[in-house]
Amino acid sequence: MTIAILSGKGGTGKTTLSTNLAGVADNAVLIDCDVEEPNAHLFFRPKLTATKALEVRYPEIDNDLCTHCRKCAEFCRFHAIIAGPKVTLVLKELCHDCGGCFAVCPSGAVSFGSRTIGAIHTCEILDGKTLVYGVLDTGELSGVKIIDEVKHMVEDAPLVLIDSPPGTSCSAVAAVEGADYAVIVSEPTPFGVSDMKMVVELLRTMDIPFGVVVNKSGIGDREIYDYCESEGLTILGEIPFDRDLARGYAEGTPACTMSESYRDMFYGIWTVILDAAEETVNGRS
């Protein structure tokens, strides 16, 4: 079972929910796919067990062999190659490593080099659970490769919780792709609702069943509840507005480990999520 946790924008409590669900769910492996700004590990005192660099390939063009036919540049839909009359230039950061330029080059001028774009850390958290998170190097444009690799590393785990990047970027798509179920975390404010609508559209397009957790319930207005009702969205749980919840971040431990009442609250939300996820998965198969 793979469950992705998403939000319309950053700072809506997505990581608070992800880390607490990881705390209460048996056998959960948490992966932080927000590779531009991973922060789930800050909620724990993680014991690093492995780190690996993530390499990607990019084309290198031998200007002695190149006949400046432009085929590679015309092929590359990421505009990673610029063809001039005397020089054919590769912009490595734009390359998505599809291999197309190599395939279309008629003169064997293309070969591949490789470079590191980030790292993946595996850690032990909360007596025996696992957190895997990717970090994209500053200046790199696409975290998709790292996200794919992080997901690949945990694909045999029975229960995976994905802390996805906020919004509906390519990275968010990569993070939720293949998930059995998704949870959107949103705040009951007008901005929260409008940002959330994009995520709802995305999940519908991707055909991933999902429900909503309202964070900081009790503040803001009713718009989110009205919206969920009109769209027929399930509200899986509510996290009340509570200053102490944020303390987990400062203390390096999720709230569910700090008190029985937090534990019970997150456990309650988790059982609803798990039931909803199992129901849709079973209903589909």
Binding site: A73, F78, H79, A80, I82, A83, G84, L91, L94, L141
Partner: peptide, 15 residues
């Protein structure tokens, strides 16, 4: 309207 690589495509046009 390119979703990414607009700068690179701009350079291609100028080249």
């Amino acid at each position: 309207h390119a979703s990414g690589g607009a700068g690179s495509k701009a350079v291609q046009q100028l080249v």
